[in-house]
Design a binder for these strands. Structure first.
Lengths: 338, 338
DNA sequence: ATTTCATGAAAAAAACCACCTTAAAAGATA
DNA sequence: TATCTTTTAAGGTGGTTTTTTTCATGAAAT
């Protein structure tokens, strides 16, 4: 079976193509009689306009390109879900791609999608790109009329809208939260040193200590770039020789590693050691004890980012001015803190 | 800045549009000199043919529509990752959508994408659709020339290619594995009663018992439809009054619930109770004890499904004949079994 | 009362979007 | 003149939009 086109309808009803088009758009120059006739027939044949023809004519595809660094990440999946829902509710479809943390892949994706397939990008910068500081593929894309809204992992070197977690303050708040629990020697554990989020969370940690008149002890800081598990354990273990009573970790699995090692060293959680972690994913809900988290609201971040891009595409938002929006965090208290 | 079109190049070099097109396609009837000139200019201007124009002309978009019931599912994300990689390697892009387990959403998605946006579908059937047995949107789609390859959750009522886990035999194998560990009273715990995978795993459980000459004790079977956590705990708890020594669960969180309750009842894992679960996700790797799993190779499933669809689209595969392919499972041994 | 012509509605035709294909024409060479 | 190369022009993809054409009506003129 073949999809019905305007031409098919025109031929069947013995009218011209333009008459059909106008009738379906309720344009008044078509007589009531003809219009009803055409509309009924179109409905009967389940007519749907061809998307490619529309895109070609309108110079916009009502599609959004999404670049995710890594799909096996609960937070990004929440963001993606938020994007998909928001986009769908505005009649946009999304093309999902994975950069796999590779700069080269990012370049290829942008090149491949900048051909009328999409109207703009939603993306989180890959690790490699963030490390090598090469952002011209993004700025070029914007120059060629494909607006970008970055989420979570952003760069100050690209002029575009950005939606991020207020990592700095969230981190500082986490410190304050632990202090209220009575913690005095709070460690910071992060494998995200080279990412902007890693830096901000570390800054927030320092700010939090300062706000609470606690000293910054370098012995209590593990700030590194994704080591393998064994290395990581070896780095974390010495912490426990410093009588710590609180840990802030920038991701879930760090927190789990730290808790595992702490238990081996005889710490009781949360009595001797309170643990709070960024990223409120599946692990946090299912760990023993269940993790207290700085919850990042990925779905909201995705929805906000999508909305922002769509506003830009539909000119409800000034194309020349860019804003950075912060998504609030919550502390979800579970069993790893008192 | 504006994207370069064939017309732009033609005007700039003072030749006709078709000359440019032919030159870029290395068609021999264009002179060496002209060809080089045009190709260089095109490269310089970073010319890319417009996707919509191509799709319109060729009546194919080189895009695949993917319908996932739920994004916050590690297994489906592995599948999606496999799909994306395989598709990208063949020059296909994917449009990712979420049915959110809803029949209505599924219908809308198919309707929205069957407009030239995509050439075919990769999908896992939503729970609601599987329950109400209404599949005409799928069969219609196939009739209208949009082939479907189903993965994981499939239906025997739709004629199309299917890629599934060999759930029945995987489940039977899991029983045999536990029996080899010395288990004699093996329980089956599943919240997926109404899904085809749930049924098959239960069949496999029964087959496995039979193969090992063990009786089927209804007291050892919890087969239900997604209860809430508390209900579920209440259903599982009575198991431990029946002196079970093994558990097969059809999903990770069931296994974790069961292990939690078992520990509360004084069972030691894996000494008193061996636990094996379907779905080899993040939870399994991070639980205490770490879960032995029937690993499903989601990425392979995605890649195989994508390959199958692309073969069909490019007529390397007979459009009229449909096959069901099984993806092998492995048992990944961790600490919840001996 | 008949013809003429303006008016306006309704419908059809044509142009355009960017690209590809193919048939035809032009030009060069033998 | 015939043959071969190179270029041009036309037509098609499905839709929207602008321009043209058609046709009926009614008023004014004969």
């Amino acid at each position: 079976m073949k999809k019905t086109t305007l031409k098919d309808i025109a031929k069947a009803l013995n009218v011209s193509v333009s008459t059909v088009s106008k009738a379906l758009h309720d344009i008044p120059e078509i007589s009531e009689e003809t219009r009803i006739l055409i509309q009924n027939y179109a409905k009967e044949k389940n007519y749907r306009p061809n998307y490619n023809a529309l895109s070609l004519k309108n110079k916009r595809s009502k599609s959004i390109g999404v670049i995710i660094p890594n799909m096996l990440n609960y937070f990004y999946m929440q963001v993606l879900q938020g994007i998909e829902k928001e986009a769908a509710s505005h009649g946009y479809r999304i093309m999902t791609t994975i950069s796999n943390e590779s700069y080269q892949k990012e370049v290829e994706i942008i090149d491949m999608l900048s051909t009328g397939s999409i109207d703009g990008f939603l993306l989180a910068i890959s690790k490699e790109t963030e490390e090598n500081g090469e952002f011209s593929h993004f700025t070029d894309s914007v120059k060629f009329g494909f607006p970008i809204v970055m989420f979570d992992r952003v760069s100050e070197h690209v002029e575009c809208d950005k939606i991020i977690t207020d990592d700095l303050n969230a981190s500082a708040d986490a410190v304050s939260y632990l202090v209220k629990q009575g913690c005095k020697r709070i460690a910071f554990v992060s494998p995200l040193k080279s990412l902007s989020i890693g830096r901000l969370r570390f800054e927030g940690y320092k700010k939090g200590l300062e706000q609470n008149n606690l000293p910054l002890d370098p012995n209590l800081v593990i700030n590194t770039n994704e080591p393998d598990y064994k290395q990581y354990d070896a780095m974390i273990r010495p912490l426990y020789e410093h009588k710590i009573d609180g840990i802030i970790s920038t991701n879930e699995s760090s927190a789990l590693s730290a808790m595992k090692l702490a238990k081996e060293d005889g710490y009781k959680i949360p009595e001797d050691l309170a643990v709070i972690s960024f990223a409120n994913g599946i692990l946090a809900r299912n760990s023993h004890p269940r993790l207290t988290c700085v919850s990042q609201h990925g779905e909201i971040m995705g929805a906000v980012a999508a909305k922002k891009l769509i506003d830009k595409l539909e000119k409800r938002d000034d194309a020349k001015s860019f804003a950075t929006e912060f998504i609030e965090t919550d502390i979800v208290v579970r069993d790893s803190t008192r």
